[in-house]
Amino acid sequence: MNIELTDITRKFGGHPAVDGVTLDVGPGVFGLLGPNGAGKTSLLRMLATIVPPSAGSLRLLERNPGTPAARAQIRRRLGYLPQNLGYYPAFTVVEFVEYFALLKEMPASQVPKAVAAAVERVDLGAKAKAKLRTLSGGMLRRVGIAQAIVNDPELLLFDEPTAGLDPEQRVAFRTLMRDLGQHATVVVSTHLVEDVGAACSEVALMAAGKIVFRGTPAELTARGAGHEIGDSPLERGYSAVLATSRKQVAA
């Protein structure tokens, strides 16, 4: 298993953003669904080793990120796209991707080819030498995806990756995710149910910091039988599970 979480909790100011999550994830595309404030981003930031858990056990790529040496080893094999990609406006696309490839401690001799491959993979070859400040939001998102995949990671974390992409780019990205998921563990946090249905082999639904459902997209769809809220079968499953979860919390 590339991700092993046992009773993970993360509190901010006493409030649990992630509350007792236990999860094992192997290779494939894993969707993380949930409404705003459910704890998806906090969970992803722990998986990206940016924040440590307040309690519980976390193992990534069979290592404990609590020690600096293991953390560095994990980070060399990690790709992460944050929800809000910060960037340096004066950098070109290639400079930005290369900068983060070097910070991932890729061997310097492999960096130019890896950068070119990543930039081409997100279809930004024509903009390779363009300054980031001249790019559209969708293009910047693809730059973020390029830096995430440049080191051919074994663990990929995407936080709202399709935000800002047009429909054609979104379809291309789903194909890319499926391709990446053949060898790596790809975790995609999103509130777009159709992304999960199209690309993910497995899905978890978070609400109030807890995982309230885990299964395949087909199993989530089945939960929506007889439920009326939602435009698609998968959306109906999503809202049915959420409704049940809220009732349980209220009770």
Partner: peptide, 18 residues
């Protein structure tokens, strides 16, 4: 202030060393 801090914090080269 650093716009890419979130990304830098997940890199193998320690952000403290940077």
């Amino acid at each position: 202030v650093d716009p890419a801090w979130e990304l830098s914090a997940s890199m193998a080269v320690s952000d403290r060393m940077v």
